[in-house]
Design a protein around this nucleic acid. Structure first.
Lengths: 215, 215
DNA sequence: TTTTATTTTTAGTTTTGTCTAAATTTAATT
DNA sequence: AATTAAATTTAGACAAAACTAAAAATAAAA
């Protein structure tokens, strides 16, 4: 697989999680910042290689082979992110771009040794699950902070939005994965939350709460 | 720079060390397993980018800019090799190919953090020097085992040939970087050496001695 | 159910890096 | 110095992955 093919497979994988019946050409083009016509060309190629099933105008789904390939790419991406943060001292908002390159390094032995070196982590620095060598993904129990009951405590376990802006906001508020959040109150009018983190009161907008996973 | 351009620059760098007045088109083609006509095309492009100075039929040399780029690629290659051996447990004959891919990962911050993580190593697993972030290469004092005086002791500090076959031969004979070699005798007829390593007598052909650096 | 709008595909180009085959330049030999 | 051999370059073509513009199919609206 070329780097370009891998990028398509990965994007189709992520979009499949949202629309499992079939992924649109335009959606893929949007994610890859390319044109619909380029996507059509590539879908034909991926279909010839039996990585996707594709019927003109009907959207595309991954075959078993494509699904496994996608999980291996995601595995590599997330393991490298763990390496960058845990071993090299990058912050969680700096690692995505570099991992986008590292995920295309080919050696299977490399990734399995890296996995062992990192202690077989089950989640990346943003709380996203890491597929194991067989492609099995351990489901991480989680709820959005916007949807939990009030008067209870939770651990932060992940973020839905991994944008730099959001991650930097969390850094500023000293919210990290593992932080304990006690939900004090929810405002009826706009769903703003009052929470307590490390004994400190904090007001959190619904948009924030809607992008933070807790357990 | 594209991956392909980086590969050309790297090859020209290595060949320059042997023929500093100018590197031949065919030599480059041989190293990259490509055709002379492809090399000519690329030399024009590299020349336009001011990475090499190139005059038709006259061979090619690196500009200062090209020379620095080359050293940064070599730096990345060798640092990744150290990582693979020291941290992930690869053996020294397994790392070249993987490092060939890793050397093209772009982030400068990444490579400097990796350097620090590895403890600022000065040589890779084969004893080759690692350029620092400014491109400075600390010269490693070394002689070929084939050229040292007899009745003296040395440390193995590097290999000239990094082929799997040679490295596996050294593994079999329990010769590693750091091993102490005492040169007992040299046969006049074919320059075969009798040496002592870890108290064990060993006969070594001239071809072997000619590819092992000691100090 | 037509008509309109949107999405997707086709057809034809472009760029990058490669190739083959032919032409040219340099080097070696008689 | 002329001829042959080797190395190098040019010219033209191709595959991969992208693009633009136009055509076709599907979905939405009147």
């Amino acid at each position: 697989m070329t780097i370009s093919e891998e990028n398509y497979i990965k994007v189709i994988y992520h979009l499949s999680l949202v629309s499992p019946k079939g992924v649109n050409t335009n959606a893929i083009a949007g994610m890859l910042d390319t044109k619909a016509s380029s996507v059509t060309d590539m879908l034909k190629k991926l279909s010839d290689k039996d990585l996707v099933s594709y019927q003109k105008y009907q959207g595309v789904t991954l075959t078993d082979k494509g699904f496994f390939s996608a999980k291996m790419i995601v595995r590599k991406h997330r393991l490298w992110e763990v390496f960058l943060v845990d071993k090299l001292g990058f912050s969680w908002d700096e690692v995505h771009e570099i991992a986008e390159e590292l995920e295309h390094i080919k050696s299977e032995q490399l990734i399995n040794k890296l996995d062992a070196f990192l202690g077989f982590p089950v989640a990346d620095p943003h709380g996203d699950p890491i597929p194991d060598a067989k492609g099995v993904i351990k489901k991480i129990e989680k709820q959005l902070l916007s949807e939990v009951e009030i008067n209870a405590s939770f651990h932060c376990v992940g973020v839905k939005d991994s944008s730099t802006d959001f991650l930097k906001y969390l850094d500023k508020q000293k919210i990290a994965l593992g932080s304990v959040v006690k939900v004090i109150d929810r405002e009826d009018f706009d769903d703003t939350l009052t929470v307590e983190i490390d004994g400190k009161r904090l007001t959190i907008s619904n948009k924030i709460a809607n992008n933070l996973y807790v357990q």
